[in-house]
Amino acid sequence: MAEEGQQPSMTWLFFSPSGRIGRLPFFLSWLFWFLVGGVFLMQMLKNETEDTALALWTLALIVSGVLSTVSIAMLAIKRLHDIGYPGPLALCLFIPVLSPIVFIALCLWPGTKGQNEFGGPNNGPGH
């Protein structure tokens, strides 16, 4: 994570497995990726008769899908750290039947107060 006293970066938030995040940053990050995918999908539907534009928007959707999958795994790891669980449990988000349950739990389960084995709490919103 960022050094003591430094603000965490967007790169850390979306693509680093280290540290902890609260409920609100976790949910808002998911919402961000959902909206990005929605915008690209809308553009694909809008340009379905234009081959070049459709190909470019499809590529953009695929790239955003890969980036969002990696990012969501990193976000889940940090969220699991916040509630005191190990990061590999984030794999549960990729099991179809468990995914919605795990997502809701990560959005609602409060983080541990103070220091835990994964570091200090995030000073941002969501705790």
Rank of each mutant, 00 (worst) to 15 (best):
L31T: 12
A76E: 07
P8H: 01
L67Q: 08
S29R: 15
L24D: 05
S71K: 09
Q43D: 02
L56T: 11
F15Q: 12
F15M: 13
E48R: 13
F34N: 14
I101F: 08
F40R: 03
P25A: 06
Q115R: 12
E48Q: 13
H81K: 10
L93A: 06
S16V: 03
G37P: 00
I83L: 12
L93R: 04
I62S: 10
F14M: 13
P25F: 09
V70N: 09
T112L: 02
L98D: 08
T49C: 03
I62Q: 10
F26Y: 15
W33Q: 14
C92T: 08
V97D: 12
P8Q: 00
M44I: 09
T69Q: 10
L13Q: 10
G84Q: 03
H81Q: 04
P17T: 04
V97M: 12
N123F: 03
L13Y: 03
Q115D: 10
G5H: 05
I83R: 02
E48T: 12
A53K: 12
L45S: 02
I72E: 02
Q43E: 12
V39A: 14
I21E: 05
P100G: 04
N122F: 15
E50I: 11
P110C: 00
T49L: 05
T52M: 01
C107D: 00
P125K: 15
L61Q: 14
A2W: 03
A55Q: 07
F34G: 10
V102C: 06
M74R: 08
G126R: 09
C107W: 12
V36I: 15
G124N: 07
N116H: 03
P25Y: 01
G119Y: 00
A53Y: 08
I21H: 10
C107Q: 05
A53L: 13
M44K: 11
G37V: 14
L98I: 11
V66L: 08
T11S: 11
F32L: 14
T49E: 08
